[in-house]
Design a protein around this nucleic acid. Structure first.
Lengths: 149, 149
DNA sequence: GTCGCTGCAAATTATTTGCAGCGTA
DNA sequence: TACGCTGCAAATAATTTGCAGCGAC
């Protein structure tokens, strides 16, 4: 993310809070800013350490609470759909997943085109791709019906 | 996965163990079979409960150990690249990730084509897709160099 | 001033580990 | 037979929660 965009995000934070009906506290602003200013996708402990430099008396659970809150509001996201427990898959063929954001259902699907999708140029400057995994998120039929009726 | 394929996988398990230099124990066979026979991507607790019906004296940590072992050997996989701690991302634009399987680096990239990739027909029978997220796994340049030299 | 937010400490949940006996190769 | 594997119980690590005082609106 470029500097202008970062600044805009940070400055707009209290407005975003207002829109989401939550208070703009000093702790939340600092945590959010820390996350916007980096592209390292840090973990909670890392964010905590960095925020602690600015607010030494902050507690780890405030960081947890804030991140969870911002995630619930859709302001930030967590990597790799970590929400629940670890789940396993014995399907050894290359495949992809459809994930229902409502009920958590995960179903496999196959796509030669996706398996073979050429990495964008930008990716090639970062490293060499060995595998492509696609996660399509949406609402499964069962949930859609339950909702529609 | 169809019935023939399942049978083939289950029958081939001891051979797979031999190839990977691990012993084929009753517990491992049952755990593996349980995972191959379902397409539900169960969590550890669920697998444990099911296996317990066949081996009542099995312990939860054997299930953990076995799943971890099979994963290390590449025989099964875990969903959503859960290996490490939860990580966060404040990038609100639709984007994708390149993940280095060596050092864990995650970097963002953008691709209009991927954002707009039409869901395969098979997916449309399961539900409605709202978002597409692609994870490309590979080796980043830093790791490649460290390895090459 | 009110009610949500924070820090503290303790609780929970998921996962891992040390050890001695057992079973596979 | 030998050494890896298992069950048990206890240890860790990650994350959540109850409570009383504080601060944003």
């Amino acid at each position: 993310m470029n500097a202008d965009k970062i600044r805009a995000r940070v400055e707009g934070f209290s407005e975003v809070c207002r829109q989401n009906g939550i208070k703009t506290t000093h702790q939340r602003s600092v945590i959010y800013r820390e996350l916007v200013e980096t592209d390292e996708h840090p973990d909670v402990e890392t964010i905590y350490k960095r925020v602690k430099l600015k607010i030494p008396e902050i507690s780890l659970d405030t960081v947890y609470r804030t991140l969870r809150l911002l995630e619930e509001k859709g302001i930030i996201s967590r990597l790799g759909s970590h929400t629940e427990r670890t789940r396993f898959d014995a399907n050894a063929d290359q495949h992809h997943h459809f994930v229902c954001t409502q009920c958590g259902l995960v179903s496999d699907f196959y796509s030669e085109e996706l398996n073979a999708f050429p990495p964008p140029k930008a990716v090639n400057t970062v490293g060499v791709v060995h595998a492509v995994h696609v996660e399509m998120k949406g609402i499964c039929n069962a949930c859609a019906e339950a909702h529609g009726e």
